[in-house]
Computed example of a mutant assay.
Amino acid sequence: MAWNEPGNNDKDPWKNKGGKNQGPPDLDELLNDLGKKVTGIFGGKTTKGGPGKSFSSIGVSILLIIGLVVYAFSGFYTIKEAEQGLVLRFGQYSGTVEPGLRWKWTFIDRVIPVDMQSTREMPSSGFMLTQDENVVNVEMQIQYRVVDARNYIFSVTNADDSLKQSLDSALRYVVGHAKMDDILTSGREIIRQSVWEELDKIIEPYQLGLIIVDVNFKDARPPNEVKDAFDDAIAAQEDEVRFLREAEAYARGIEPQARGRVKRIEQEALAYKSQIVLDAQGEVAKFEKLLPEYLAAPEVTRQRLYIATMENVYSNTSKVMVDVEGGNNMMYLPLDKIIQQQSTNTRANSPQSYVPVSQPSQNSAPSTSDRADRFNSGRN
């Protein structure tokens, strides 16, 4: 028969313990016994139901105070300067905290720190099909940072993974609508800008809380099987650009020289014109001053003009006249010096090489002596 069957039985294990009829132990009695034992250890005397009971109340209070202090200190946390904290209360978003020392309810609040200032990088690469049905390997890298911590954490499951997929989609879309020559050579900047714009359009509806800082076009190359042919094509295009630049530089250098040469010739022509006009005016002035002298003494003036003319003629010739009559001495003449001096005088009196020199004609102006003779004959 079980000890707890109805009826009179004394088989309860909590009764007759130690030969006495007693019930299960009480919590207060356990605490009192513990207090008595502790008091006995420290030499204190206890009375029944008095000091033991007060000691148990004090112990519970001390434990409660210690627990509260530990709980209070466990709620302090720090948000770094470059971060923002998202506070979740029972799993629900309740606010954002700024950098500094903060406090939260332990086991109630949860804080998620988010880096807001660091610039992050994300690469993307792969073989892609172009518009002209060629395969090209493109490598691109973007730089981004977080601008909205709440959207970055709660808008999608993983904002970084969503951005990665969006980048791959934008890159393949742009490369698929471009030609291979543009991707490999002159259209790289256009491809970069197009990928940036397309990526912004893709991530805008998802509100990822991210902003694209920069897009870098790292490399674009054809498959290894056709790499040599494309290298030759690129080298030819670069040579074409170089030759065009050299031609433009030559044109910019030779054109100012030609203009300067033309300007110099114009200035020399104007100077020669002025010289001829001034010489003519001088001859006229000389004739006007000589005419009264000739009218006053025609013979003397004629002889003077003849002698001056002959002196001018003989000074420009290489002939030397020597009178050796009545002498036996050998005369040394520095003919080389005389000829050299005559050549120097001839070059000095001749006009510039580019100015045409006309031969005197029947209609040319007469010399001073001829004009004087005709004037004198007219008077006679």
Rank of each mutant, 00 (worst) to 15 (best):
A280N: 14
I202S: 07
F154W: 05
D168W: 00
N216E: 05
A365F: 05
N16R: 03
V241A: 15
N137D: 04
E293C: 04
P13I: 04
V241M: 04
L210R: 01
P25V: 11
Q362M: 10
Y152V: 11
Y173Q: 13
F217P: 02
T106G: 04
M180C: 00
N137A: 02
L101Y: 04
Y354Q: 11
A348V: 11
F107L: 13
R304C: 07
N329P: 04
V277G: 09
E225G: 01
G40I: 03
K11W: 10
V357P: 01
D12T: 15
A229W: 09
N158W: 06
V195S: 08
A149N: 07
D279N: 11
A249R: 10
G378F: 13
N380H: 11
L270S: 13
K48V: 15
K45A: 11
A159E: 11
F55E: 05
T96V: 15
K53R: 11
E299T: 08
M321V: 05
G59F: 07
L244N: 02
T301M: 14
D228N: 12
N224M: 03
Q131A: 06
E204R: 02
E283Q: 10
P113T: 00
P256Q: 08
Q275R: 12
P223L: 13
Q207L: 15
E311L: 08
N328R: 15
L167E: 02
A269W: 08
M1A: 10
Y173E: 12
G50N: 05
F42V: 10
P223T: 14
E288G: 06
R150I: 12
R102D: 09
Q193W: 03
E225K: 10
G95W: 07
T130W: 05
A236M: 12
I212G: 04
M310N: 07
Q341D: 07
P123L: 08
R242E: 14
Q193A: 13
P205V: 12
R374T: 09
Q117I: 00
Q362T: 03
R145D: 03
W14E: 00
S169L: 00
R120P: 03
N224Y: 10
I191K: 01
A249Y: 06
T344C: 01
E299Y: 06
N151F: 01
G176A: 02
P360R: 14
Y77G: 07
P205G: 06
G327K: 12
I79G: 12
N312D: 11
N345C: 04
L129Y: 01
K48C: 04
L163W: 06
F73P: 00
G35L: 02
P292W: 05
Q92F: 01
N158G: 00
I254V: 10
G253E: 13
E268L: 12
N328D: 13
F107E: 10
M122Q: 12
K179M: 03
V313N: 08
Q342S: 07
V174S: 00
E246D: 06
Y354W: 15
D279G: 01
Y332G: 08
N151C: 05
R374I: 03
G187E: 03
I254W: 13
N216Y: 13
N349R: 15
D231P: 11
A249I: 08
I339N: 14
Q141E: 14
K286D: 08
F243V: 13
L290I: 07
S353Y: 05
V97G: 07
W196E: 09
R245M: 09
F375W: 02
G126C: 09
T130V: 04
R374Y: 01
M331K: 00
A308Q: 12
Y250H: 10
Q257P: 02
G19I: 14
I66H: 09
